[in-house]
Design a protein around this nucleic acid. Structure first.
Lengths: 114, 114
DNA sequence: ATTGACCGTGGTGTGCACCCCACAGTTTAT
DNA sequence: ATAAACTGTGGGGTGCACACCACGGTCAAT
């Protein structure tokens, strides 16, 4: 069982992030000492924390990660990854539209020769 | 000279947006009546407001629009448009990297057949 | 003069994912 | 026993671009 600082070092997540995730019920400590409210994490938590860390880097939001965690067996992980991928592709599309509009704006500005 | 509501209707910007832009020194009224602090806009303001409205739709932030407005002749507008385009392309790149990482993650999960 | 529409200011709220701080209790090491 | 190190909680702050609110003053029309 690891205390929060130790666990933060192991996982690379900050203490504040761990407290935040606990508050969001995204990653709850394996045990909380009722005497002092200290959070204790175990080896199972390590797997979950590194998964969350990875998903964050993939652009997942907290809400999306909560969806992932809802099924303990992670049988929906693949579907959620695909879904996230589609969301990102949509964002890319929107940005490409903006680029096109900027190009049009640039072109319209050049239609006035000297 | 138009009062704020009238000007809002003409330009399509909300009153709050106009007040916000005034506060940000992005689009200052042509005249402010010192007796009641009423903001008055003129025809020159219309051109600027529609330009800002257009830039917002192109994804420009307030700060970026402030850069545009800094030169009254807008001789730097083209350069700033190009610069903005580059920023967006960079964002697109980052998102594409995320997609690739998700693909890798998906592929790694499939390496374990039944 | 009165009423209703309008205006300004100052403040709060929004969503996201935390960071940082002070305060107080607790644990660990010496 | 004592001091240093750690922990929790509660609160505020961050950046962005406004929206929304109440309050009080003001303007326009009648």
């Amino acid at each position: 069982m690891y205390k929060i600082s130790e666990f933060a070092e192991i996982t690379g997540l900050s203490k504040e992030t761990l407290r935040y995730y606990a508050e969001m019920k995204l990653l709850e400590p394996a045990f909380i000492d009722p005497k002092n409210n200290y959070r204790y994490y175990d080896d199972g938590s390590i797997f979950l924390a590194t998964l969350l860390s990875k998903l964050r880097k993939l652009g997942f939001t907290i809400q999306e990660m909560i969806s992932v965690m809802e099924d303990e067996s992670f049988s929906n992980l693949e579907a959620l990854l695909v879904q996230k991928k589609r969301k990102i592709l949509k964002q890319i599309n929107e940005l490409q539209l903006q680029v096109e509009e900027i190009d049009e704006f640039l072109a319209s500005g050049k239609e006035e020769p000297e």
